[in-house]
Simulated scan of single mutants.
Amino acid sequence: MIMAIDVSNTNITLGTFKGEKLLKIYRVTTKVPRTSDEYGVLLRDLVRLSNASHHEIEGVIIASVVPNVMYSLTNACIKYFHVHPVIVGPGVKTGVKVGAENPKEAGSDLIVNAAAVKELYGVPAIVIDYGTATSYQLVLEDGKLDSVVIAPGIQTSVQALTSDAARIPEVEIRKPKTILTKDTTECIQAGIVYGTIGETEYIVRKMKEESGLENIKVVATGGFGKVIADETDVIDIYDNILTLQGLRIIYYKNVAAGRKSRKIQN
């Protein structure tokens, strides 16, 4: 059994896998400061909810865009699971080439999503991740992460709006029945959801047009991706566990290459 951990700016998403089967998925808040013991106890308890023991965890893989949690999180894996985790970054086999001018600047989440799409759905493809930021990435036929467009995420946009405007209330993110809304809550919902649909359709169209790849598939993921995917024809596939699947795929690529997460012998 392995544990895959995706650390984003908003949430830490944890998945436990037995082979290719995802047993359970959990999310905890990233921004809460935690010690290695707090992470260890939390992760161990979440594994138990999978009807498993922490002793069954043979390997851990982590992708993180939040550097300041990594010391505590890594030490939690070592102390509580007796495993040195694989950290997605330079030197880790992913099957993805990075086309950026400075490849080290490419976020590990982008690389993991590209690896997942290449393996599960085929490339070339456009991958959209509706997270803290909304990212649109073009993955070419050779597995090259060619280009990325980054826009404010749905929740980030709502938080910016409600925190900076005194009379704007917090709202649930869902599509109202009509764009011709009458009350403040639905006005905000219409602007956020229909605005993101419009953004998605325009950016995808421009990426296809400028790449010359008019018929490539579009795969979406991320917590709010389902809301958008249900409302537009430009998204072909919605996969809410794409990133965790990518981590699983990368982990076993490194097992095959002899660079797996190392179990500590007592």
Rank of each mutant, 00 (worst) to 15 (best):
L73Y: 15
E209M: 00
Y39N: 08
Q189T: 01
T200Q: 00
A220S: 07
V69L: 14
A52D: 09
G15F: 15
V255G: 03
R248M: 04
Y80G: 02
N254V: 04
P152F: 08
N51H: 12
L46Q: 05
A125V: 04
M70F: 11
G246T: 03
I264P: 03
N102V: 13
L23S: 11
V112H: 08
I249D: 05
L73D: 05
R259P: 00
T10G: 06
R174K: 15
S147E: 08
P85C: 10
T10S: 10
K144H: 07
L46N: 02
D109T: 05
K97M: 14
K18H: 08
D239R: 09
T162N: 12
G15V: 09
I249L: 12
I241N: 14
N11A: 13
K79Q: 13
I5A: 08
E105R: 15
A151M: 03
K24S: 15
Y238R: 03
E56I: 07
L161V: 02
D129L: 06
F17E: 01
E172S: 09
L110V: 03
K177M: 08
G198K: 01
T185C: 06
Q189H: 05
A229Y: 07
A165H: 10
Y252T: 04
T134A: 05
A190Q: 06
T156S: 08
Y71S: 12
D233P: 01
E38R: 15
K208S: 02
M207Q: 04
G212C: 11
K118D: 00
P103Q: 05
V66R: 15
C77P: 09
Y136W: 03
H55L: 11
V66Y: 14
T16K: 13
D129M: 06
V86Y: 12
I228H: 09
L140W: 13
A4V: 09
T35D: 07
E105Q: 13
E105T: 12
K226W: 03
I62E: 06
V96Q: 04
T10W: 09
A166L: 10
